[in-house]
Amino acid sequence: MKKSSIFFTSLVLIVSILGFTSGKAEAAMGNWHSIGNGCKVRVWVDAYTYSKKATSIDWYAQTNGKCSTLNYTASLAVSEGYSDYEIKGTFSNRTPTKKFYISKLRKEHFNQKRVAVDLYVKNSKVSGHVQSHTITVNW
């Protein structure tokens, strides 16, 4: 009886540990990209891979604190070009978390699973493109 109790407890422990670690999405912060005058920007995306059940690609942009207010236009970059779905705004330190809703993305860009959040930033002193790491979207 004691052996089966230890076995059962061990089994429950192993299953619970595996259950807590295997289903988690892994977010990733991109590398810093210099856009001039000491200003650097990077893009965070909430996962490396999005399943067919995913509803959005969540992201934000962040500066190193040495940028004045930046205007931005964000879109998804794919090998065929850019999606027409854009998000525009301004930020000086960090944008709020933004979402590209997968249902709004143009179907012709769904051929390629590998995409990146592309951010065009500018102000009167600096401008440049910053991309997230490449992500996989299983359309």
Rank of each mutant, 00 (worst) to 15 (best):
T21L: 12
Y60M: 07
G19C: 04
Y82G: 00
V15P: 05
A25Q: 15
W44E: 06
Y50F: 15
S4C: 03
N123D: 13
V78E: 00
Y120P: 00
H33K: 12
W139A: 07
E26I: 11
T49Q: 11
I17K: 11
S10P: 04
D118P: 00
N37Q: 15
H133C: 03
W59N: 11
Q131S: 14
T9V: 08
I14K: 05
K52L: 07
W32A: 14
E80N: 06
V117K: 01
R114E: 14
Q112L: 13
W139N: 12
T55K: 11
F100R: 02
W139Q: 09
R94M: 10
T21I: 13
Y85E: 14
G128M: 07
V45F: 04
Y60P: 00
V126W: 01
Q131P: 05
W139L: 10
S68Y: 08
K66Y: 04
N64I: 09
T49A: 10
V15N: 08
T90D: 02
K24H: 12
K3S: 03
M29V: 10
V43R: 07
N64R: 11
N37F: 14
Y60F: 12
P96L: 08
D46S: 15
K40I: 06
A47I: 01
G65N: 13
E26N: 13
K104S: 09
H133F: 03
T49I: 10
L76H: 00
K53F: 14
S51N: 10
A77V: 05
K98A: 11
K52V: 11
S92V: 05
Q62W: 04
I102L: 09
N37M: 15
A47L: 02
T49C: 08
S56Y: 11
T21C: 09
S103P: 05
S16P: 12
L105V: 07
L13D: 06
S75R: 01
K2V: 02
W44V: 03
S68T: 09
K53P: 11
V121Q: 00
L13S: 11
K104G: 03
V45M: 06
S132W: 00
K52I: 09
I14P: 04
A74F: 04
N93C: 10
Y50H: 12
F91T: 00
N123A: 06
N37R: 15
C67G: 08
G36Q: 15
T73I: 04
H109P: 00
Q62Y: 04
S68L: 07
N71S: 11
T97V: 13
S16F: 14
R42V: 02
S92M: 12
H133K: 05
D84L: 03
S10L: 11
A61Q: 06
